[in-house]
């Protein structure tokens, strides 16, 4: 069922705005996987802004919850699943040069064919994984 989700649209606009600002100010793509990897293994002079971006990511999320009073999401305490999924996500985004932000938001909005292809593939596999997972475990997780 489709209803109009105000928070989803507001959140999306903020994400898009952040990407535009980062490009306008310092000419960089707001792709989180690239920023994370660059903060760890990038050139020394190019690390600090990335670390600050990631710190901002954490602080911005916390600020949202405290300013709006909206509750913090409940986590899934399945550690083995978190480890396997984390490894797959990390390996995949590095190999595929991007994730939901770099390919999905920045790349598609620049009409990059690589990003359209990557986004289509990770969406399809995300959907398929949830479908198979639910089938094997019986119902929505």
């Amino acid at each position: 069922m489709i209803n109009f989700p105000v928070w989803a649209v507001a959140g999306g606009v903020l994400i898009g705005l952040s990407a535009v600002l980062l490009m306008w100010l310092i000419g960089r793509i707001a792709g989180i996987s690239g920023i994370v990897w660059g903060a760890i293994a990038g050139e020394p002079g190019d690390k600090l802004w990335r670390l600050l971006f990631l710190a901002g990511l954490i602080a911005g999320a916390l600020a949202f919850h405290s300013l709006t009073g909206r509750s913090v999401p409940v986590v899934n305490d399945n550690y083995p699943l978190a480890i396997i999924a984390g490894l797959l996500v990390g390996f995949g985004v590095k190999l595929g040069s991007g994730c939901t932000s770099g390919h999905g938001v920045c790349g598609m909005s620049r009409l990059s064919p690589r990003s359209f292809a990557a986004t289509a593939v990770f969406m399809v596999f995300g959907i398929a994984t949830v479908a198979v997972f639910n089938m094997l475990t019986g119902g929505s997780a």
Partner: peptide, 14 residues
């Protein structure tokens, strides 16, 4: 970096 990170993080949470 910090400013765009803050906006992005708020966007993700929202």
């Amino acid at each position: 970096g910090l400013a765009t990170g803050l906006i992005f993080g708020a966007g993700l949470a929202a």
